[in-house]
Amino acid sequence: MKKLRWFVNFEKEEKYLSEMASNGWKLERYSIFGIYTFKKNPPQQINYRIDYRTFKNRKKHSDYIDFLDDAGWKLVSGGYHLGYHFFIPKDKSFENDALFSDEESYRQRINALVKNCLYGFLLSIIYAIVFWGSALNNSLISIFDPKTWYLTPGLWEMTGWRFLFSFLFETPFVIFRSAPPFILVLISVILGIQALRAYYEQKRGKA
């Protein structure tokens, strides 16, 4: 089962995942687009812990996973480029503990989240503007007029089956040409939400 959810607070996200586990749905993996994939499982109490860290190379990432595994935390989902890592305790005796108890570790998590979200947000916006600007300058498309996205001469004067065939034939190419900026805008929105999450954490006085 897949669920689309966006959170601006780590604790609320951890609570949500724990509630899903108690209802028989265990987290299997997470996508940066906010898609949670759950696997049907016997209801159980699982206290998830979320960490956000990026790494310069795979060796450092592997060392990080090994360090937490030795400390009693099992990785559920999280990759080298993802940033987000979801853990569950291997021993129920410390399932209510935090991944890191020191302030510096918490600060590193928030600072990494802020930096990456802002960089990604700005780059996505810049790329979207450059794409649209180039397209508009070349009179290829107009943002607010989808008809201009189709380049078949006389398409909108056609009728009947001829129009339908030409329209359906070109539509995949239109999607290919116009999708990138919309995807970039979507990514910008997602990164903006993640930046809001970091800001919320900072306002709570923990970073």
Rank of each mutant, 00 (worst) to 15 (best):
F10W: 09
T54W: 08
I175E: 11
S77R: 01
L191Q: 03
D63G: 00
F7G: 03
F67H: 13
D102V: 00
M1I: 14
G160D: 10
I125K: 03
N41V: 10
Y84D: 07
Y200D: 02
E103L: 09
I143N: 01
Y200F: 09
R162A: 14
Q44E: 15
A71R: 12
K206G: 02
A112E: 02
W6M: 13
F38R: 06
I35D: 07
C117P: 02
D70M: 07
R197N: 09
G72F: 01
Q44D: 13
L186D: 07
Y30T: 05
G192C: 02
P181D: 06
K12M: 09
F100L: 03
G79E: 11
M158T: 10
H81C: 09
L122S: 12
L164W: 11
R162L: 12
I143C: 05
D145K: 11
E170W: 08
P89M: 05
T54N: 09
I141K: 03
V189A: 07
K12Y: 08
P153V: 10
F100S: 09
S31V: 14
E19L: 12
G78H: 04
L168V: 10
H61P: 01
Y30E: 10
K206E: 14
Y199K: 08
I110A: 01
A179R: 00
F167L: 12
Y80L: 07
S134Y: 13
I125T: 06
F163I: 10
S142F: 07
M20N: 00
I125F: 07
D145C: 09
F33N: 14
T148I: 06
G72V: 02
K147R: 15
P89V: 04
N57M: 00
Y199R: 09
K15D: 15
K203M: 09
K26N: 14
P43E: 10
Y199L: 11
K59S: 08
A198G: 00
A135F: 08
G24H: 07
K59N: 08
I129L: 15
E170Y: 14
Y199M: 06
S18L: 05
F86C: 05
T152A: 09
T148H: 07
D91G: 01
F169I: 12
Y127V: 11
Y30I: 07
W161I: 14
A21M: 06
R29F: 13
G133H: 04
G78N: 05
M1E: 10
R58G: 02
R162D: 14
